[in-house]
């Protein structure tokens, strides 16, 4: 029982962190162009940044 007092909240905390990370990645548009992201890995760094960046 004692261990549960911190283990369960810890487990939930990790879950919440994962959820927040997912929601953040969704909001920041990382799922907008999945095919493009897969291909862009083949480009060199400076080209990938694109213009004006």
């Amino acid at each position: 029982m004692d261990s549960l007092i911190f283990l369960v909240p810890l487990a939930l905390l990790i879950g919440v962190v994962a959820l927040v990370i997912f929601l953040w990645s969704l909001r920041s548009g990382q799922y907008e162009d999945l095919d493009g992201a897969a291909e862009r890995i083949l480009l060199d760094e400076d080209e990938d940044r694109g213009p004006g960046a």
């Binding site: 907008e32 999945l34 080209e47 213009p51």
Partner: peptide
């Protein structure tokens, strides 16, 4: 790469981004 470079190189263009999906 070709499209983004080509378009970004044009005068006046400030941003060119391709969405492959």
């Amino acid at each position: 790469r070709k499209i983004e470079r080509g378009l970004a190189g044009l005068p006046g263009v400030t941003h060119a981004r391709v969405n492959l999906s």
